Lab assay of single mutants.
Amino acid sequence: DDWEIHFNNITIRLHGVSEEQIEELKELIKNGAHEEELRKWAEEVNR
């Protein structure tokens, strides 16, 4: 699925990401992940 997530003036566009991966991302954000951590997560997902 395609997703677009907005938070802290950042837009993250995701393509072909599962519901499970979105839940992981929500947890990262909820736990106060920094932009660098989110980038690493996105790189892993996009492999």
Rank of each mutant, 00 (worst) to 15 (best):
16 G>S: 10
34 H>V: 11
32 G>C: 04
26 K>D: 03
6 H>D: 05
38 L>F: 03
31 N>T: 07
5 I>A: 05
47 R>E: 15
27 E>S: 14
35 E>C: 07
1 D>W: 15
12 I>P: 03
29 I>Q: 01
18 S>P: 05
4 E>C: 08
19 E>K: 13
39 R>I: 15
3 W>A: 03
15 H>N: 08
10 I>R: 04
31 N>C: 09
6 H>Y: 04
14 L>C: 09
28 L>Q: 01
25 L>P: 00
46 N>C: 14
40 K>A: 11
28 L>N: 00
19 E>Q: 14
5 I>P: 02
4 E>N: 06
18 S>M: 05
40 K>W: 05
23 E>H: 12
31 N>H: 08
32 G>S: 03
7 F>P: 01
10 I>Q: 06
20 E>V: 11
27 E>I: 09
35 E>T: 06
2 D>L: 09
26 K>H: 08
17 V>M: 11
7 F>C: 09
4 E>H: 15
27 E>R: 14
8 N>Y: 01
2 D>R: 09
23 E>R: 14
36 E>S: 11
35 E>F: 09
38 L>I: 11
15 H>E: 08
30 K>W: 05
7 F>W: 09
14 L>Q: 01
26 K>V: 14
13 R>S: 11
33 A>M: 14
22 I>P: 00
9 N>M: 11
44 E>S: 09
37 E>K: 05
20 E>R: 11
7 F>V: 12
33 A>G: 04
33 A>T: 06
43 E>D: 13
7 F>A: 03
21 Q>D: 08
22 I>H: 02
46 N>T: 12
30 K>P: 00
34 H>G: 15
40 K>D: 13
42 A>E: 12
13 R>F: 05
3 W>F: 14
47 R>W: 07
14 L>W: 00
36 E>G: 07
46 N>M: 15
28 L>A: 01
1 D>C: 15
44 E>P: 00
33 A>F: 05
15 H>F: 08
46 N>L: 14
41 W>Q: 04
43 E>H: 01
16 G>V: 07
33 A>Y: 04
39 R>E: 12
22 I>E: 02
45 V>S: 02
28 L>R: 03
45 V>H: 13
40 K>F: 05
34 H>S: 15
10 I>W: 00
37 E>V: 13
1 D>M: 15
36 E>M: 05
6 H>T: 12
3 W>V: 11
34 H>K: 14
37 E>R: 05
13 R>E: 06
39 R>N: 11
47 R>A: 15
29 I>P: 00
31 N>L: 07
47 R>N: 14
5 I>L: 10
19 E>I: 13
24 E>K: 09
19 E>F: 14
41 W>S: 03
37 E>Y: 07
9 N>V: 06
30 K>G: 04
47 R>S: 15
15 H>T: 13
5 I>S: 06
14 L>E: 01
21 Q>E: 07
